[in-house]
Every structure is written in C-alpha cells, then in structure tokens.
C-alpha cells in the first residue's frame, strides 16, 4: 500500500460516509415536504407584539389576516381590533340555582368563537355535581342523560374566570397573554410560542391548546371577528374564553349568555353600580371557585 492509495481510499471512504450521512439526513427531514408553509410568511414572522404595534402595523396585520382567512375559508371576515371601553370592567355572574346543564352555552361558544371542531376545542366545561358538595373532584363532565337536569345533581359551567390576578399571565415567558383594561385576559395568537406553561398555571382548566391545525367547516365560520378574540387560530398556540370581545366591546352580550334557555347567566359592567352584575354582587350570595388560589376572578357564582 502506497501513501497515494491510502489517501485515495481514505477519501473514498470519507465521501461514501458523508454521502450516506447526507442521504440519511435528507430522508430524516423528508416529512417537512408536507409542511404547510402558508403559516410561515415573512410578514407573520416580522410582526411585532400587539402592544408594540403602531396603528399602521395593526392595520397591516389585520389586512394580512383578512387575506389569510379569505384564502382558507372563502369568506371575507369583518375583522376589527376593538379597544376596551373606558370605564368598563366586565363581570360575569352565573346562577347555579338555575343552570340545568343543557350545554347550550358550550356549543354556542364554539360557533361564535371559531373553535376547532377536530380536534375539539371548547372553552366551557359544564360539571355535574352531586347535591351537597362543590368538590370538583367528584364532578362528572361527561353526563349524557336523555334529559337534564338530573334531580340529584346541580350543574356548574366553568370557563375562563378572567382573574384580576391571573396566574397564566404571570407565567407566560413572552408576554403573549395579558389582562386588558376591561379585565379580560387575552392571547396574542401571533406571539404565543406554545410552551403551555399558562395551561399548567390555570386553576380553572380554562386554557386550550391547538395540538393540531384547527378544522372549522367553511359554512360555520363566524365572520364577525376581532384580533384579540375569535379570529381563526393556527396550530401550536394557546386560546381561551375572552368574554366574546368581538361582541362585548361593541356593547353586545356574550354568545353563551344569549343562548341560555333558563337565564342563568348575567353579564355587565362591574364599574357601573347600577349594572346587573353589580346588583348581583350587592344583593346575592356569591362565591368564586377556588378562592384560596388568590386569583380574584371576575366570574362569580350565585344562588337565589
């Protein structure tokens, strides 16, 4: 063996190894050919945090989203970015004595807020509880009686409590979720990195993660959209109940309330002493779920 042949052999051997390695690497990353790149636009990548956007930036972002929605769902959405109303802090009160557990609110919410149907995402959970206890550990989320209510049970719908001291906001590493001036905790779906720390921090199981690309039937898309609320989400980001900001910031009632057949749900402005929710806080027996967590919810349960 001369030096030359050794060299040539070494070179061949190395080339073969390198080529094989590259082939294996290429094969390993080959699933990426199915990657939906519409989600990775330069505009989207460069978009600033919601709070840092100038009005022009916002309009640009809104237009980009309108286009994306139109391409995907063939519907031109009424997408807006409604600001909080001065002197308004939203409060929600739910009458446990009335709720019959019919789950109308759950599904009205899905229709209103463009949640994914598969995998299923719902913001409201209705708990069936045995009379005489509000121990959620004894709750049944999956009751399927022919008719409700069951005479031995009462029902407790749970959704985001819009805490004044929200643990989810505290833990977010990138400030993708925060509490707005009207008390609603929102998510910037274009900023969330999908670490799910907020889901771990929430004591009310209010946060939902898009584990896969959300699927919404085109004909069921709600075109009345708002940037911080019900615009369609992408996979890999967190979402949650936002008191229907697209409605409530325009003075309307949330969807879950309007559909309630027994009028168990009340919604209004906590800063207005004459509002229905203020009256409930004044005159009814109120409790909040997991008060010991110190989260100061803006969602109250009452009895009458």
């Amino acid at each position: 063996m001369t030096e030359r042949t050794v060299d040539r052999r070494n070179f061949l051997r190395a080339s073969l190894g390198a080529a094989g390695g590259m082939a294996a690497f290429a094969a390993a990353v080959s699933p990426l050919k199915d990657f939906d790149t519409s989600d990775l636009t330069l505009e989207g990548f460069l978009q600033k945090h919601y709070k840092e956007m100038t009005p022009e930036d916002k309009e640009q972002a809104l237009e980009r989203i309108r286009k994306e929605v139109e391409e995907r769902y063939a519907v031109r959405p009424e997408l807006r970015d409604l600001p909080p109303i001065d002197g308004v802090e939203f409060g929600y009160a739910l009458n446990l004595g009335r709720c019959i557990g019919c789950r109308r609110c759950v599904h009205a919410c899905v229709e209103e807020n463009n949640q994914s149907r598969d995998p299923e995402i719902q913001y409201i959970r209705v708990l069936e509880l045995p009379r005489g206890s509000i121990d959620v550990e004894r709750s049944d989320h999956h009751y399927d009686d022919r008719e409700v209510p069951n005479p031995d049970s009462f029902y407790m719908p749970v959704q985001c409590h819009q805490c004044a001291n929200p643990p989810c906001v505290k833990v977010c590493p990138v400030e993708a979720t925060w509490r707005e001036a009207d008390g609603v905790v929102v998510v910037d779906y274009d900023w969330c990195i999908g670490c799910r720390y907020c889901a771990a921090a929430c004591p009310y199981f209010a946060r939902r993660f898009n584990y896969a690309e959300p699927e919404i039937p085109k004909e069921r898309l709600n075109p009345n959209m708002n940037y911080l609320s019900n615009r369609p989400r992408k996979k890999g980001v967190m979402e949650k109940c936002h008191f229907c900001l697209q409605r409530t910031r325009a003075g309307r009632m949330p969807a879950c309330l309007e559909v309630c057949p027994v009028g168990a749900r009340q919604f209004g402005n906590l800063l207005d002493p004459e509002s229905n929710v203020s009256q409930i806080l004044k005159t009814k027996q109120i409790f909040v779920l997991k008060q010991e967590a110190g989260t100061l919810p803006r969602f109250f349960y009452y009895f009458d």
């Binding site: 990775l40 505290k170 990138v174 900023w191 990195i193 670490c195």
Partner: peptide, 29 residues
C-alpha cells in the same frame, strides 16, 4: 424545551419580549 414548543419558529420572541423577572420560565432560559 424546544421540541416541547408549539411554535419553535417564534423562538425569537424570547429575546424580543422576555417576561423577566415575572415568569419563572424566563429565569430558566
């Protein structure tokens, strides 16, 4: 940590708007 992220393409956001010192995850980073 990276594979656990839903949106690893937004890793930059950790540098642009790190929620320090409130979020323990920012401390960890």
């Amino acid at each position: 940590v990276t594979v656990d992220l839903g949106r690893p393409d937004r890793f930059m956001h950790l540098f642009l708007r790190l929620n320090f010192p409130v979020s323990m995850l920012s401390w960890d980073v």
